[in-house]
Structure formats: structure tokens, C-alpha cells
Design a protein around this nucleic acid. Structure first.
Length: 949
DNA sequence: AAGGTCACG
DNA sequence: GACGTACGTGACCTTG
């Protein structure tokens, strides 16, 4: 009996792109970039060491793309036409990929005129037809068409995503596409693919495509059925784009009958460590792999009988070591093992965990709650992480309320919290969380003042803001970080609790499942901390994290818990008034249009304005839809279109009503009677905060009618609101950072900066020139382009260019700032604020001009906007202690709006508080940075936020 | 789920 | 020669 054969086909080309984006830009000892090669090598290593496992390969080949041209280009010249060329530092790595493959003595297949996908398909079918199992190492959705279970004498075909460490079988394909693999091609043909430039049917995405194929059984079925559908956009598009869909079907079809250049038998793995490997690893400085080879541990092609927990690297490689270049060498931790997690169900065991945490001085924590809103949710359990796979979950409130008999054994919540409190509040133990602000707020409501804390999400932000690590995203959420840094796919909340209608509260989750999920979160947080915290010191992130963002966490948590009072009655009255006005306007607009339509639909409105009523205006954008935004409507109004003003008014009132007067009433917390926003510390790439649920950073102020909403933000009886804002902080920072003598002098003398700009530029100051100067000043901050400025000023591009030239001439330093900033970002990949906060710009050297220029503008702005964010954050951190020192312990800090802080305080404290607040804000850069310009502060107070301005 | 629009700094 | 053109956000609405 011959043993079971299992062929692995590695989609090498796809892999190296992903490895390139995921790994830091390492170089080998001779300076050639090898980041992607390193990723590829470790992947091959891992696959080859699986030789003796049940699902491991007996045969393996790597398939590469030889050229970008294939038979598909003959059918459709646009195929893959919009694909940008590979990044420059990836190009020299392609030949090295072949070297790496050869070093492992593995087969490497590439054929002129054939895409890797077609070769993979042909090899896979051929092997499966002989009864071999096949695993395709790729995550390409086109290849999912091939997946299938064993069927009689035909072997199974599945896929393996080595980055996500997940298998893709029939079930996964069905989950993704909603159809069997044999119909995946039909779905792909309908939805198209922007990466490969496969057209599909315009307007049909994955959801619609799946639905159509499910309903009609096939692409042809769906297209044939279109004629009988009831009138809709979809029907129209299916009929119109039928040919494109059919063409797409051909393009996504894999060619399964290619000649096989090397017979499959030749792919056999023989278990002997290949000779050329050592040399290859040495040449490229892959020292940790060399060590593994030397010590005989898991050498490729050989059985790996070692407990992975014992595979520990020597710490800290040299700088010439490719792996040590930008990342510290870390001990390799054992793989996540959820079965190791402990459910703590009695006080004795809880005390043991607390004792160990106290001794370790670092504990990862995570709270599980009944809802997302930290101001309303009930605590149902806490998990602790003390080490890799050393994590527990402590449930307090699990079990059905209706089935008392089913309630599992748990510790009493009050008793448990009383036992945990000394740990949570101990100065000697760092509590690490992923977004620990949330846990801080929950636990504060149960009487625990958690401190000191560290936050893996914030650390990730301070290291990697703006970095898109693997094309999937550059976010800082736990699931993403786990994937990126640990290569581990976490259980998601959705996995455990479901979503939509089937969502169950966490307290209803059975304890075994709850323990897996909750303890894993603590485990992953602990592991991420091991990864990320050391990077701060190595990569220069310590100052901004320790001095700005880390201390800010509890300050912001406090502001969120304070909330702000809004006057429900006055909001309700505004809503009512708006409703009356809105319905009047609706009638007027319908009358002017001559028919009823949905004014809130830009599409319908565009048709009415430009088709029905025949006003002049342009089409716009990919959707082929008329644009109807404010600027267009204002132009129409100037042309004498009465309907335009009505629509503008309608839009304004609808916006105010739905987004503010209605929504804010709904946001009042029934327990506290106040509105509690949630600030994100990682929301804006520049380092600014952002505010959600509700967003209190975009409350109207620019129009009189909107300002009424600010009047509804009020103080408690006997108190007032005080608003303090930095005046022109970004321009002041630009003057300092670009070292512009004229601007610095103007700020030092307290001049009107836009007027001074007008004087310098035009030699005269009036309303017009001042307004123009103001526009230009902003244009500078945002990264100028002559077309952009021309559009704003309503002048020709060359006139705008002349203004820019004058500006650069009158304010020398600005141009130098722009040039040097861009040079530095192009070279290093990131910009930096005066306090060392980095923002990464991975597209700064893009070949796509739009992408590149967009990055350039953002990169010019980021140091300025980011420094401003650093400064107000430093002020926030110092504010309450400074006030307390002056006996002003009753002042509460409520809101931050980028350059403004809002406080609530007893009326009698206002005069004493003002100078303290002003001093803290004005001096917030010190002592780290001494600015050449003063920071001006404007302060006002009154019964409402509106009145405080 | 995406695009358009608009509120803020 | 066209593209789309100022930086950073979040919420709501309509439509597919």
C-alpha cells in the first residue's frame, strides 16, 4: 500500500507581494532589500517542516508568474491594465525568490504566456484526478473555484493562507461566496475585480452577485432572468452589461489543461536538508534561521519533534542581521492554545491568580460587558493574562435570567471585585489592555481606579500610525494586530455572540466558549505587549507615548465619564421648528420642480435640476451622476434658480435636525442625564483625537441657525461653561517650524495674521485681500497646489501660481520647509512632529501621481496638525493637577475640539480658573520644546457653550 | 455597503 | 491629454 500523497502548490508571486507589505524593509549585509524574501523563506521553511504531519506535504512546488501577458490579454486588452508596477525595492527581490526556492531544492515552475493561476489549476486537477490531495498555498479568490472535497477516486483540493494560518475548504468558500466552488466563477464574473481590472457588471458587488447566482443557479440563468425582472437599476445594468459579464466569465475561468512542464512525481520531498540552504541563509543574513538549522531543530524536510514552547531565540540580534534591523529580536512564544485557558469559578482560585499577577508586576486585563457603551454596560466578567497561554476568565454574571437552575457556578461580583481591587489599584503592577480606556470606564463605575496602565492599541498607534501593513489595513484593533504581529486569527465577538438578530449578550454565552474568547483576548494582549512595548525605545516612540499619550488615557477616560449636560427641552423645540420649516420647503421645492421626488436623494435631485428643469451643470465621477453639492447649488442660485436656495436651506435644516437636535436628545444617558461621547486616541493619523457616539467635535457654530444648537449645551445650576481655545495655533506652528521671520514677528506683536499676510502679498489690506490671504494661509497648511488654490479663489491656475510664488518670496522658509519635509518623508517613510510623533506615508513614493501627490499634501500638513495635537494633549494631561494645586478642585474638563477645551465650573471659580487654564495651555510645549512664537489663548464663559464663545 | 453630502477643526 | 485637486475627522441619508 502506498502512502497517501499530498501535493502542495505555492502561489509564489502572490505571496511575495503580501510578504513585502507585511514585513519591515530589511536589507541583507550587502544592502539589497530582502524583507519579502525573508518572509517567503520562513514560509517555505514552515511548510517543509510539516512534512510528517497528517496534512503536511509529500510533494511541493512553487508556481511563479513569468510574464504579465497571457491569453486573457488577447481576449481583453484591459486585463490587469490598471495594475501599478511593483514597488522599486521589491523588484530586485524577484530573482532572489527563485534563489530561495532553489536553496530548498524545491521545484519552481513558470511558463511564458501562462499565469501562475492556470498552472496551479492544471497541476491541481491532474493530481486530484490521480487521487492525490492537493493544497494550494494562496488566498487568491480566483483559485477558490478549484476547492473540493474527496469524491470517489478524485482527491480533495483545499487552500492554505499561511499569513492568516487558515485553511480554506468547501465550507469557507461557501461562507465567502454563498455558493459552491463550481459557481464561484459565475459570482466573480458578475462582481468583477478592480485589481485584475475585470469589468463585471457595473454596480454589482459581492452581495448582489451572490444573491443573483443563488437565485438563478448560474450566470447565464441570472442574465436570462434579467428581462423578466421588475424595473430597477439592477435590471437595467444586467441587460446593458451582459456582454461584459460574459467576457468576465471567460477571464476568470482557469485554464486547467496546460501542459505540465515537470511531472508531478518530481516534486517529491525526500526529507534531506538541502545543501545550498546554509549558504543562502548566510548570504542574506537570516541568522535566526541559520541557528535553527545548526541546532537541527525543525530543519526543513525533517520531522520536527520539538515542543514549540522551547524554541527560544537568543535575544537581540546585531544590526547587520536582517531580522534585527528594524524589529527587536523577540523570544518565540508557543502558539496560542485555547485549551490551556482557565475558567475561575471560586474565590480560592481567584486569589491564586491575583497573587501570581502581583508577583509578576504586569498583567493583561480585559473586561467583558453586556453592551458596547462603557457608560451603560454591565460588567459580566474579567479576564487576566499573565503569560503565553497563561490566561483565565473570571465570570460574574453568566447564565439565563429566566433559567435560574442553569446558572453556572461563579464568584460573586462584589466579592471578586473587592479581591481584585488591590491588584487593579496597585502602583506596582502595570495593567495592560487593548483600548484600556474602555475597561477604565467600566471599572470606574464599579469603584476601581485602575492604575498604572499601558495600552497596546495606543502603543501600536504611536509606532505605526499611517502604516498599512499588509494591504488589508493599518488599523490598531486587536484582531488586526494579532494577525499582523502574531500571525494568529483571534476569535471574534461575532464568532461568539453572533450578529444582527441572532446576537446574544455576552452574559448568555456558555462558560467554556466565554472563557476561550475572553482569556484569548487577555493572552493576545499580553503577547502584543511583549512585541510592541520594546519597539517604543528602539524606534524612538518612548517620549510621545510616555509623556503624551499614555498619561492622556486616564484623562480622556475621565472626560468621557463626566459627560456634558444638554437641554433636552430646547433641543426638542428646535427639532419641532426645523420640522415645520422642512415640510414647507419640501412643498415649495416640489412645486418648483413640477413633481414630487426625494429631495434627500442626490441622484433624484440631480435629475430634477439638470434634466427636468434643464439648468446647466456637469456630470461628475465614475458613477455618472450629477453633483449637487453646496458649491454647485450656490452657482445655480447665482444663475437665478430659485429652487437652489430652497434645496440649500432644506439640506441645512435636515442636517441639523437629524444629526444634532434629534440625535443629541437620543444620546442623553438615562442614568446620568448627560451626553457622554467616546474619544478615540487612535482615530486620526496625525495624532488628533476623534469623537464618536455622538461626535461632539462637529457641533455647529459657523451659522447663526446652527449656533442655536451650541446654546443647548449647558452647565448645571450654579455653574458655567468655559471655553478656551488656541488662536491660530497651526499657523503659529508653521511660522516656528518653517522659521519665517515675518510671520514670527507678526505673532509676537499680536497682529491680525491674515491682514499681515494681505499686506505682504498685495501691499494693501481690505476685506477682499484679507479673505484671499486667509485662503492662501490655509492652502499652505494643507499642502498647496495651484489648481486647488485657483478653484478656491476663483482665479486661473497661473494666477494662483503667481500668488504662491509671491508667498514663497515674502515668507522665505515655507518653501524650504515643504521641500525638506518631503525629502525626509520620502527617505524615511514617515513625518515627525516637534515631539517626535511619527506618521507613516507608505504611498509617498507611489508611481500613481494622484496617490503620491495626495500623500505629499498630507505629509506637509501632518507635522503641523500633529504638533498642535501634541500640544493640546500635553495641556490636557497637566490641566486638572494644575487647577487642583490652585485650590480649583471643582473644575471639570468636559470636551476637547482639536484646539479648544471646554470646562464646567462653579460660577465663583471662573476668575481664578482663567489664568491657570491659560498658563497651562500657553506653556504646554515647554519644557520639551521652546517655540519662537507665543501661543495665544482665547477664553470665554457663560451659561452655555454658545455663550462661552 | 457605498457614495454623496455636510457638520467641525 | 485626462485624471482630480487642500489637511484631518464622523454621521446621516439613499440606494443597491
Amino acid at each position: 500500500m502506498s502512502e497517501k500523497q499530498h501535493l502542495y502548490l505555492v502561489d509564489g508571486s502572490a505571496y511575495i507581494f503580501r510578504a513585502y507589505h507585511r514585513l519591515p524593509p530589511l536589507t541583507n549585509p550587502t544592502g539589497i532589500p530582502v524583507g519579502a524574501v525573508y518572509g517567503y523563506t520562513t514560509m517555505l521553511w514552515k511548510l517543509a517542516t510539516d512534512l510528517d504531519t497528517a496534512v503536511g506535504p509529500t510533494h511541493l512546488a512553487v508556481i511563479l508568474d513569468k510574464s504579465s501577458q497571457s491569453f486573457r490579454n488577447d481576449i481583453y486588452p484591459e486585463y490587469k491594465a490598471n495594475r501599478p508596477p511593483p514597488p522599486e525595492d521589491l523588484i530586485p527581490q524577484f530573482p532572489l525568490i527563485r534563489d530561495a526556492t532553489r536553496a530548498f531544492s524545491l521545484a519552481c515552475i513558470e511558463e511564458e504566456g501562462l499565469e501562475a493561476d492556470d498552472l496551479i489549476a492544471s497541476y491541481a486537477r491532474s493530481a486530484a484526478s490521480r487521487g492525490w490531495d492537493v493544497t494550494i498555498v494562496s488566498s487568491d479568490k480566483d483559485l477558490m473555484q478549484l476547492v473540493g472535497d474527496r469524491d470517489g477516486d478524485t482527491g480533495a483540493i483545499d487552500m492554505l493562507d499561511t499569513m492568516k494560518n487558515s485553511r480554506i475548504g468547501m465550507a469557507e468558500v461557501e461562507e465567502k461566496f454563498g455558493v459552491l466552488p463550481s459557481l464561484v466563477g459565475d459570482v466573480l464574473a458578475l462582481m468583477g475585480d478592480s485589481v485584475d481590472n475585470i469589468p463585471g457588471v457595473y454596480g454589482v458587488g459581492p452581495k448582489t452577485a451572490t444573491k443573483l447566482i443563488q437565485e438563478h443557479g448560474s450566470l447565464t440563468g441570472a442574465l436570462d432572468a434579467a428581462a423578466a425582472m421588475k424595473t430597477s437599476k439592477l435590471k437595467e445594468r444586467l441587460l446593458e452589461h451582459r456582454a461584459m459579464a460574459e467576457l468576465s466569465r471567460v477571464l476568470v475561468t482557469l485554464k486547467e489543461d496546460c501542459d505540465l512542464p515537470i511531472p508531478i512525481e518530481d516534486f517529491a520531498l525526500d526529507g534531506v536538508p538541502p545543501e545550498p540552504l546554509t549558504e543562502f541563509l548566510q548570504t542574506h543574513g537570516f541568522t535566526s534561521l541559520l541557528r535553527r538549522l545548526d541546532s537541527g531543530r525543525g530543519s526543513p524536510g525533517r520531522a520536527n519533534d520539538l515542543n514549540p514552547a522551547k524554541q527560544v531565540h537568543a535575544a537581540a540580534g546585531t544590526n547587520s542581521d536582517a531580522e534585527g534591523g528594524s524589529r527587536q529580536q523577540l523570544p518565540e512564544l508557543p502558539a496560542i492554545d485555547r485549551s490551556a485557558y482557565v475558567c475561575v469559578q471560586d474565590m480560592d482560585m481567584l486569589r491564586q491568580w491575583i497573587g501570581r499577577a502581583m508577583a509578576l508586576r504586569v498583567v493583561a486585563i480585559d473586561t467583558e460587558t453586556s453592551a458596547l457603551d462603557a457608560m451603560q454596560a454591565d460588567l459580566v466578567g474579567i479576564s487576566l493574562g499573565l503569560g503565553a497561554n497563561d490566561a483565565c476568565y473570571i465570570p460574574f454574571a453568566h447564565g439565563g435570567h429566566d433559567l435560574l437552575s442553569d446558572t453556572p457556578q461563579q464568584v460573586d461580583r462584589e466579592e471578586a471585585l473587592a479581591a481584585l481591587k488591590p491588584l487593579l489599584e496597585s502602583d506596582a503592577v502595570i495593567k495592560v489592555g487593548q483600548n484600556i480606556k474602555y475597561d477604565l470606564n467600566i471599572l470606574a463605575r464599579y469603584g476601581a481606579k485602575v492604575s498604572p496602565v499601558d495600552d497596546t492599541m495606543v502603543i501600536s498607534f504611536d509606532l505605526d500610525a499611517g502604516r498599512s501593513m499588509d494591504g488589508i489595513g493599518g488599523g490598531h484593533g486587536m484582531d488586526e494586530l494579532s494577525q499582523r504581529h502574531l500571525g494568529h486569527t483571534t476569535l471574534t465577538f461575532k464568532d461568539i455572540c453572533g450578529s444582527g438578530k441572532k446576537l446574544i449578550p455576552f452574559g448568555q454565552v456558555p462558560l467554556d466558549r466565554a472563557t476561550e474568547y475572553a482569556a484569548e483576548d487577555a493572552d493576545v494582549t499580553w503577547r502584543l505587549y511583549q512585541h510592541l512595548k520594546p519597539r517604543l525605545a528602539i524606534e524612538g516612540g518612548t517620549r510621545v507615548y510616555e509623556r503624551v499619550d499614555r498619561p492622556l488615557i486616564e484623562v480622556v477616560a475621565g472626560m468621557e465619564r463626566e459627560g456634558v449636560k444638554v437641554d433636552r427641552a430646547s433641543l426638542a423645540k428646535l427639532s419641532e421648528g426645523f420640522a415645520v420649516e422642512i415640510s414647507k420647503l419640501e412643498q415649495d421645492i416640489h412645486a418648483l420642480a413640477g413633481r414630487e421626488f426625494t429631495i434627500g436623494s442626490p441622484k433624484q435631485l440631480g435629475d430634477v435640476l439638470f434634466d427636468t428643469l434643464g439648468y446647466k451643470g456637469g456630470r461628475k465621477g465614475k458613477s455618472g451622476q450629477y453633483s449637487t453639492d453646496q458649491a454647485i447649488l450656490e452657482k445655480l442660485a447665482d444663475q437665478g434658480a430659485p429652487i437652489a436656495n430652497k434645496v440649500l436651506e432644506y439640506r441645512q435644516l435636515s442636517k441639523l435636525k437629524s444629526t444634532y437636535t434629534d440625535a443629541l436628545q437620543a444620546a442623553i444617558n438615562p442614568r446620568t442625564g448627560r451626553v457622554h461621547t467616546s474619544y478615540s486616541l487612535v482615530g486620526a493619523q496625525t495624532g488628533r483625537l476623534s469623537s464618536t457616539d455622538p461626535n461632539l467635535q462637529n457641533i455647529p457654530i459657523r451659522t447663526a441657525i446652527g449656533r442655536q444648537i451650541r446654546e443647548s449645551f449647558v452647565a448645571e445650576l450654579g455653574n458655567v461653561l468655559l471655553a478656551a481655545d488656541y488662536s491660530q495655533i497651526e499657523l503659529r506652528l508653521a511660522a516656528h517650524m518653517a522659521d519665517v521671520p515675518t510671520l514670527k514677528e507678526a505673532f509676537a506683536e499680536g497682529q491680525d495674521i491674515h491682514a499681515r499676510t494681505a499686506q505682504e502679498m498685495f501691499g494693501t489690506v481690505d476685506r477682499d485681500t484679507r479673505a484671499q490671504a486667509k485662503t492662501i494661509n490655509f492652502a499652505i497648511l494643507y499642502g498647496i497646489s495651484r489648481w486647488g488654490l485657483a478653484g478656491r479663489l476663483g482665479v486661473e491656475a497661473d494666477e494662483a501660481q503667481a500668488m504662491i510664488d509671491t508667498y514663497f518670496q515674502r515668507f522665505p522658509g515655507i518653501q524650504r520647509y515643504i521641500v525638506t519635509t518631503l525629502e525626509s518623508v520620502r527617505e524615511r517613510g514617515y513625518s515627525e512632529t516637534l515631539f517626535g510623533r511619527k506618521t507613516w506615508f507608505p504611498r509617498i513614493n507611489s508611481k500613481n501621481p494622484n496617490e503620491r501627490q495626495g500623500s505629499e499634501r498630507a505629509a506637509i500638513n501632518a507635522p503641523i496638525q500633529g504638533t498642535s495635537a501634541d500640544i493640546i494633549k500635553r495641556a490636557m494631561v497637566r490641566m486638572l493637577p494644575a487647577l487642583r494645586d490652585e485650590g480649583l478642585g471643582n473644575v471639570r474638563m468636559l470636551l476637547q475640539v482639536h484646539d479648544e477645551l471646554v470646562f464646567e465650573l462653579p460660577e465663583g471659580d471662573v476668575e481664578a480658573a482663567k489664568p491657570v487654564i491659560e498658563a497651562v495651555m500657553a506653556g504646554a510645549a515647554l519644557p520639551a520644546v521652546e517655540l519662537d512664537v507665543p501661543l495665544g489663548i482665547e477664553i470665554g464663559s457663560g451659561p452655555s457653550w454658545g455663550a462661552a464663545h
